[in-house]
Design a binder for these strands. Structure first.
Length: 867
RNA sequence: GCCCGCGUGGCGGAACCGGUAGACGCAGCGGACUUAAAAUCCGCCGGCCGAAGGCUGUGCCGGUUCAAAUCCGGCCGCGGGCACCA
């Protein structure tokens, strides 16, 4: 490309980006309003927690979302693309603890800082719909929704276990428990029972599971994960009579076929029978206490050794009448089924280990086809298929048939019921924290637990609060919790628990539809207009909890007449993580990228503090703790938002992890430079050229125009497939070809050349606009356009220019490439076959062989099978 | 342990329905321009043997097919989810 004689203005992203961001804001380009005439498109990205700074994960998430939003706008859709803040949560309280700043002040300050940072990315949000979940207005309507669910019977209170820090006198979240100790006090964490609020998500277990099949736009992995999380199982519920007592022991099993192999029962430490035993037996009490010590984290539970305690009670087998012992076992969960299990050591691994440890008999009732199980020789349980033995009337049946027959028989005799169980538990939403939304309930000593009357909402958080890390700040507040009972007027007490922050993220996408509404949580008409979300973009880490809670909450809201659709998110795109290698100095530990510098000689990277060689570690998710982070602010300040966005979108397809690469960023920068120079030089040399509308006379130019239109088709298609990286590479090719043609063309440019290049450049700007909106707007304007690119339509490929005038035919002999034929398009198969056989190189490879078969794929390939 | 997903050059990745493996980019090498550097532009770039050309090659082994990175079976490796759910 020639540059002499054309002193060209350099690409200056900082100036351009500020200009266009200002312009879009002034012109309200991305303001969304309901419009019955146009098809709506709701593009949602997961709103961030306002930690204070944006990180590369945000940049990637929001770049992907913005590309899709801008693309749909160019497609003529009426796009809603909002942004807000997931603003309640523990970090604000931690900051309060550390820096003495009020959580609210800290949060709002962070929101301002992050909004400023996000705005430098040039994202096409409708900022007029911005919301923060800690805003009293948002919290107000969330409390109102909570009460609607309460009225519907979807909210209830029950006791449940929490992590209790005995020194700080406070409840700990799982992540605050480190090696079984409180993160601040270091005290051994205890399990403590506390009355807490729950949402009845299990009432929707079946619908949540079945709904997954109606979400073809969701990644298979996410659906599988949710399905496993719900964990539906079918089995039999029945009860054992207890020897010498009138009460019974209810159990649930998925293996009724093994029922005649029962040699004991086990119950959870929290089971009523275990409590009863503990009351009369100090040794049992000690065992139960031991089981309940330690944190509730999965980690600690899973490591625990299997232990039991014989209650001395005996269960009577419903079929044989045989008496079997009942053990308290530390691995039985009170929260699943009935908290009691029939134990079949021969056919369940846990029961087997337990039986061996406590010398309980093993009774085989299923024999596999390939070997014979002998109880005292077994080293593990047999859980596979087989034939029933020692099973009385069921002997000889295969176990699957026996399973059904036993369920039927139990039902017929009224001994038990077929039952479905779920792994999914009800959603505990109580948090003993300050910085969350208060649960709007009141405890009256005489009237019991009552909802706060609607006209008294919202329950506000007190501003004058002391965050000490000990106890629950709301509980400790001197006056806040004192209120008159709404029913009897007597002195009552507010609920001091606040809601899980997953509550806020379960309906924010609905509130975006009507953020200004101040008379109700939601405006049904506007919500119905925009919902469901057409495409939701966010991190895979939210595959289960957030996305399952939001689906549940949405269905619950549907059942209290707040929304109409069944599922909130039609399509889901889960983007991969941003990763980078880690740098570690033997002395100074993890290093930030700027702390490891190129050493002398060939020493590689060295620590900037001590000069020792740096150990390059694994490529891992960017995280502060490993210090393998790159600050988006610096990247954007240095290269501009367009380069940052282009790199993020080009380096990997969205679903895959993205590996950070400094030189990859340089590559993106260089490409924008090429685009810049090509467009400006073309405009200098042919300022009045109009884009070509027909195929040129000149063969080379014809080819170039065909390339332009093939690129339009390819990028359009790649958008459908969400393959942003390959779409960008197609435009790169086009720009490379265009640059070559321009460099090789005489001055002044022949009109035909100018027209083809003009069309090429304009097409490239249109195609690239969703990815790199600022530089394309600027170049578009410099080409003389008055209507900005952000209001232009997506280009359509000219069908004539998409047809090929020649074919390149691949010729294979026995599947191996031997020749290429360039022929006029539409050459008949017979001619292709003939030409292939006549080809000199093909002849060489056919020498001494007999042609067995010839496969011709019109326009593409001829394969000659010979032997 | 169970359930998913993935293994392609020095690197990120492409090849969409089984049909030219390695597009595009990075790194590297060579060259042009320049007093020089930067920037920019051009060329080369899986491995082996070579002059043309040939052989080989998509984690490994086998199968289906005229044709396999792609489909099937079995291994190996990596990543993720769940993990006493009876």
């Amino acid at each position: 490309m020639r540059t002499d004689g054309y002193p060209m203005e350099k690409y200056n992203p900082q100036a351009i980006e500020a200009k266009w961001q200002r312009r879009w804001e002034e012109e309200q380009t991305f303001r969304a309003a309901e419009d019955a005439a146009r098809e709506k498109y709701y593009l949602l990205v997961m709103f961030p927690y306002p930690s204070g700074r944006i990180h590369m994960g945000h940049v990637r998430n929001y770049a992907i979302g913005d590309v899709m939003a801008r693309r749909q706008r160019m497609n003529g859709k009426n796009v809603l693309h909002p942004m807000g803040w997931d603003a309640f949560g523990m970090p604000a309280e931690n900051a309060a603890l550390k820096e003495g700043v009020h959580p609210g002040e800290w949060t709002w300050r962070n929101i301002d800082a992050m909004r400023r940072e996000l705005k430098t990315m040039g994202l096409s949000y409708d900022w007029s719909r911005e919301l923060a979940t800690c805003d009293p207005a948002y919290a107000h309507w969330e409390q109102a929704l909570f009460l609607k669910l309460y009225e519907k019977g979807l909210v209830y209170r029950k006791t449940s276990l929490v992590n209790w820090d005995p020194v700080d006198q406070t409840v700990l979240a799982n992540e605050q428990v480190i090696d079984g100790r409180g993160w601040r006090s270091g005290a051994l964490v205890e399990r403590r029972e506390l009355a807490q609020w729950f949402l009845r998500i299990t009432a929707y277990a079946d619908e949540l599971l079945a709904g997954l099949d109606k979400l073809p736009g969701w990644p298979e992995t996410v659906r599988t994960m949710q399905s496993n999380w719900i964990g539906k199982s079918r089995g039999l519920e029945f009860s054992f009579a207890l020897k010498g007592r009138s009460d019974r022991l209810t159990v649930y099993t998925t293996r009724p076929d093994t029922i005649l192999g029962v040699t004991f029962c086990s119950i959870a430490p929290e089971h009523p029978l275990a409590r009863e035993t503990a009351q009369r037996d100090p040794a049992a009490a000690a065992f139960v206490r031991e089981c309940l010590s330690g944190a509730v984290t999965e980690e600690s539970l899973e490591r625990a050794e299997k232990k039991g305690f014989d209650t001395g009670l005996q269960a009577l087998h419903p079929l044989t009448g045989e008496a079997v012992p009942i053990y308290i076992a530390n691995f039985v969960l009170m929260s699943y089924g009935s908290g009691a299990v029939m134990a079949v050591p021969a056919h369940d691994q846990r029961d087997f280990e337990f039986a061996r440890k406590y010398q309980i008999p093993v009774k085989v009732v299923i024999q596999p086809a390939d070997r014979k199980l002998v109880p005292h020789l077994m080293t593990e349980a047999y859980t596979g298929p087989g034939v029933q033995v020692h099973s009385g009337p069921y002997d000889g049946l295969d176990n699957e048939t026996a399973k059904q027959r036993i369920i039927d028989d139990f039902q017929d005799k009224g001994l038990g019921e077929a039952r479905v169980n779920y792994r999914l538990r009800d959603w505990g939403i109580s948090r003993q924290r300050y910085w969350g939304n208060p649960i709007p309930m009141i405890h009256c000593p005489s009237c019991g637990v009552l909802p706060v009357p609607a006209e008294q909402l919202p329950v506000p958080l007190p501003q004058d609060v002391e965050i000490t890390g000990a106890g629950n700040p709301l509980e400790r507040h001197p006056t806040w919790k004192n209120v008159p009972c709404p029913k009897c007027g007597a002195a009552a007490r507010r609920e001091t628990d606040t809601m899980d922050t997953f509550m806020e993220s379960s309906w924010y996408f609905l509130r975006y539809c009507c953020p200004d509404l101040n008379s109700a949580p939601l405006d049904r008409a506007r919500v119905d207009h925009w919902m469901p979300v057409d495409h939701y973009v966010g991190g895979i880490e939210h595959a289960v909890l957030h996305l399952l809670y939001a689906r549940f909450f949405h269905k619950a809201l549907r059942d209290v007449d707040q929304v109409s659709c069944d599922e909130p998110f039609s399509r889901l795109l889960t983007q991969g993580m941003v990763r980078k290698d880690t740098h570690r100095c033997p002395t100074h530990g993890w290093l930030y990228p700027q702390e490891s510098v190129e050493g002398e000689d060939e020493a590689g990277l060295c620590c900037v503090h001590c000069g020792q060689p740096v150990v390059i570690g694994r490529n891992e998710k960017m995280s502060k703790s490993k210090r393998n982070v790159v600050d988006p602010g610096e990247l954007i300040a240095g290269y501009g938002a367009d380069t940052a966005r282009l790199f993020m979108l080009f380096a990997a397809p969205p679903e895959r992890d993205l590996e950070w690469s400094d030189s990859g960023v340089d590559g993106a920068w260089r490409f924008l430079g090429r685009l810049w120079r090509l467009t400006l030089e073309l405009h200098e040399r042919a300022p009045d050229a109009q884009p070509a509308r027909t195929l040129p006379e000149n063969a080379e130019l014809r080819k170039l125009r065909r390339k332009t239109h093939a690129t339009i088709a390819k990028v359009t298609d790649d958008f459908e497939r969400l393959q942003f990286n390959t779409g960008i590479s197609a435009v790169m090719e086009l720009i490379n070809d265009g640059g070559q043609t321009l460099a090789q063309s005489p001055d002044p440019l022949p009109p035909e050349t100018a027209a083809v290049l003009r069309e090429l450049a304009e097409s490239a700007l249109l195609l690239l606009h969703p990815y790199v909106p600022h530089v394309t707007e600027e170049l578009w304007e410099r080409l003389g356009h008055e209507i900005p690119l952000s209001r232009q339509s997506w280009p359509v490929a000219d069908p004539e220019a998409l047809t090929k005038e020649e074919w390149t035919i691949v010729v294979q002999v026995n599947g191996k490439l031997r020749a290429r034929l360039v022929v006029p398009a539409e050459t008949p198969d017979a001619v292709l076959e003939e030409m292939a056989l006549e080809d000199e190189r093909v002849q060489t490879h056919l020498m001494g062989k007999t042609v067995r078969k010839i496969v011709v794929l019109s326009g593409r390939l001829v394969n000659i099978a010979a032997a």
